[in-house]
Design a protein around this nucleic acid. Structure first.
Lengths: 131, 131
DNA sequence: TTCTGTGCAAATCTTTTGCATGGCA
DNA sequence: TGCCATGCAAAAGATTTGCACAGAA
């Protein structure tokens, strides 16, 4: 588990248990929607409100600590990490990370450096293909 | 301009002026959000309701005539055409179509045939880079 | 102690639904 | 003519905002 306290201290946001819980949840699940985050965190903080989740998600996005990945389903969020593509299964909704180099041709990579692009691929994952 | 009447006649949906207007609008703009469609069509059909746009968009999606592309902004829609990637500018929100072959490595293409995948790339477009 | 964050409730925005009427086939 | 589509209004859902109190620095 990463040092989330440090992440927050280096931003313009104060460290609060709620924020740490959100980051921890995103780290554990990899990607999670507002609802998912809310449901999980409510177990630890029964009094937490949905509004707090929304406010913090927006604040963390503005600080560049997390980013929104937009799926056909609900938007999900993840903690920023090295550039990679998202493979999203259209059946089960599962999200898989794929390194850019496994997918993208070099000349296109040169035109648009990793740091500047986000990539989403929707398809049917291996599990769902078997069924 | 394509024969939208024919598209509808080959589906389970009846041909109505509103549906033709929606398809025409999507064809003209390339991609458009619910709001955009509504605002444009209201000029021709002042009495059209937002609910009609929503209902028709959902019906056209179910018939496979249009598809939803999910951007960081609002969802937009487009008339189905040959498989291609969407390049979405994070600054101006403009959407550009790019053939799969210009981007994706062959071995990945073989694993996931065109027909099974949708691809979105978020970056900064040429215009915005110049500014 | 100061100032930001939290949690509640209300407000706003977005999307869906029900129903009476209108229009396509 | 029969049945689906439209448009209105209301309902349901999702997200944001205002404010008083609590908690981090």
């Amino acid at each position: 588990m990463k040092n989330f306290k440090n992440l927050l201290e280096n931003s313009n946001l104060k460290t609060t248990p709620q924020r740490l819980a959100i980051l921890k949840e995103l780290d554990t699940k990899g990607h999670a929607s507002i609802e998912e985050i809310y449901e999980t965190i409510k177990e630890m903080f029964p009094s937490i409100s949905l509004a707090t989740i929304y406010k913090n998600i927006n604040a963390l996005k503005e600080e560049g600590i997390i980013s929104e990945i937009c799926l056909h389903q609900k938007p999900k969020f993840e903690i920023d990490k090295s550039p990679h593509a998202h493979f999203i299964c259209k059946k089960c909704g599962n999200v898989e990370d794929i390194p850019f180099n496994d997918i993208i041709k070099n000349d296109f990579n040169q035109k648009y450096p990793d740091s500047q692009k986000e990539l989403y691929i929707y398809g049917i994952c291996k599990k769902c293909k078997k069924v």
